[in-house]
């Protein structure tokens, strides 16, 4: 199972055309590093918020949310690596939408 390499999107209608070609193999690692850095920076604040809100109730949900996020991270990675092969083509008269992940 390989991570997605390329994302293609194309939208056409009689008035305009829009095409998007995203090299995920370049963008993906950059976004991943960015998300990791932001997460590490915000983590202490999340723990402080959970501690402050603990007695009122929402604190438990904040902590639970963080815990579920960490647990779900590997499953998210597996989901991302399953995306290659997705293809959606919809034609409605002169309008076309095309989306694929390779």
């Amino acid at each position: 199972m390989m991570p997605p390499v390329l994302l293609r999107m194309r939208i056409r209608n009689p008035e305009r055309r829009f095409s998007l070609w995203v090299p995920l193999f370049l963008v993906g690692p950059v976004v991943l590093v960015f998300v990791l850095v932001i997460s590490l920076l915000l983590l202490p604040f999340a723990f402080i918020a959970a501690a402050v809100l603990w007695h009122r109730g929402p604190g438990r949900w904040v902590l639970l949310g963080l815990f579920m996020l960490v647990r779900a991270a590997p499953a998210l990675v597996v989901l991302m690596c399953s995306l290659p092969g997705v293809k959606v083509e919809v034609e409605d008269g002169p309008e076309q939408v095309y989306f694929s992940v390779d």
Partner: peptide, 25 residues
Amino acid sequence: KQDRVNIRIPVAVLRAGIKFASFIP
């Protein structure tokens, strides 16, 4: 020229999505 739809989804995506059900607290 009528409506056409062609969708292809890897079964691996369905399997990966099923795994998320185990994360429901």
